[in-house]
Design a binder for these strands. Sequence first.
DNA 1: GTCTATAGGGGGATAGAC
DNA 2: GTCTATCCCCCTATAGAC
Lengths: 210, 210
Amino acid sequence: MAKKKLNIEKDTTTEDRIKASARAVFHRKGFAATRTRDIAEDAGINIALLNYYFRSKENLFQIIMLETMSRFLLMMSDFLNDEKSSLDKKVELVASNYIDFIMIEPDIPIFMLNEIRNNTESLLNKLPIKDIILNSAFFSQHRELVAKGKIKEPNPLHFLMNMLSLVVFPFIAQPLLKAISETDDKAFKELMQERKKLIPIWIKAMMKAG
Amino acid sequence: MAKKKLNIEKDTTTEDRIKASARAVFHRKGFAATRTRDIAEDAGINIALLNYYFRSKENLFQIIMLETMSRFLLMMSDFLNDEKSSLDKKVELVASNYIDFIMIEPDIPIFMLNEIRNNTESLLNKLPIKDIILNSAFFSQHRELVAKGKIKEPNPLHFLMNMLSLVVFPFIAQPLLKAISETDDKAFKELMQERKKLIPIWIKAMMKAG
DNA sequence: GTCTATAGGGGGATAGAC
DNA sequence: GTCTATCCCCCTATAGAC
């Protein structure tokens, strides 16, 4: 233990190493609590070089934030727009893939939601969020099923909220839930694996009920 | 508009006014992004006085954090331990009251979850979280219904997660959801009102399904 | 491109008058 | 108790050598 693994690979450019470190530290601590020193140390360089490449902490943050959000959005778009699959299948896709994604990068959800709160829309307006989500196959399929009477609650926003809630929230509340239930890391991961199968079943039951 | 309402009431003690301001600012911006100057200004006093009463920013934060978490825990405990009501009824209680609570103080959930992430358990261990939640009537009722075959998924943690997810997550993701769907504040509040009735119905359907 | 040294400023905390 | 003035550290950013 001890000795943290630093991000000093020889086969990447300095710029990329700084970005990788910035991403890691920003995601873990958020903008305000992050010091450029931490990023520089993690990347194995000094602050001067960081500013040489990225001008300022603020600017570096904007770059990371934009990339992280684009990545998230692109992933969502892929799942929600797959024309071939049914709505049920899409729920399975989102649950399974998104849980896998968050397991690998557990800091991203709370990081994004927290920074969005502060940046109040400045960033949100730079991305075509509305187009991607609202015009997705996911939403039009939902509309069809509502028309056919297969789904009771007609508002697609409730549907989207429910799906994201059940998938994402347990990770955001992870420390609290662990403390409540004396669950260790291994057991928690198993719970999340179970949810990959359970969430689609639950969602299906909800659609019929209310 | 303009002119922010400052917290300068004559009928409270200075100490209480500082605490009220600290609570407001910490909740909104988190520990790292908060400056003691902001708190002092909001309370209508200066930093010297803040340190006279509370010694340090860190100490003031600990006090606020502990109070906020205690308050949250006490509320949960009240809902989950009401011996008279059925499990279904408890779900209604939590959904309805907790949504009302968050509407009044929308910053609390993400504030708590975010600061818990940084403080890593130091604070969680000061509170009797486990006892209050795990030994609650809520959990024993859940166990009974599992035994009777009325609930399919036996793990009470899934049940707790689902309930909290459906209630809390939409508020945490509020800015994102608003951006996605072009929902304004009024419409969003109506959605949350609808959820007070919908969540208990959904939960009931989920229990039977998986 | 990368470093050392340092400027510049902001923010938490304290001394001391009232 | 409350204020003004000030200290001092830490952090971002830049100047300038290599």
